[in-house]
Amino acid sequence: MPAIADEERPGDEVRVVEVDIPSDVRLIERVVELVRRECQELDYAQRQIMLNVPVALTEALSNAILRGNHDDPAKHVHVRAEVDHVRLVVEVADEGEGFDLDASLIDPTTPGNVDREDGRGLFLMRKLMDRVERIEAAHGSVVRMTLRRE
């Protein structure tokens, strides 16, 4: 079983979800639900709860498991989300070498790309979050996504 810690700090209204999972795409939905629940508790817009957060976070986790960790169950993905009344900041860390976010700027909506089966993951993360960035880490790769509450 993955170790899951759910820490709440009601004094400053910041809710923290911290999860460590083995590389298994079947665990993605459970992690998404933990983060989504905190956004719901803090009255984020329904669209953010039903679309922006789950889809963008699923993409980030999927990238970390399949690309970062190459689907190796011995490698883990660490997720830390901080949610307050202003914004959600979620970091997804894997044990891989990461990838250049800026080098992955395929536009899947162009006529030549719209019938491609892949290439929409990063596009959706960028469209659905206010900010997507890769941050420096001693080991592995960390992607941070920020969404302002509506």
Partner: peptide
């Protein structure tokens, strides 16, 4: 509920 990029890819 929701669909991610790989779900969309399967539909394509």
């Amino acid at each position: 509920g929701y669909i991610d990029s790989s779900g969309l890819g399967v539909l394509v």
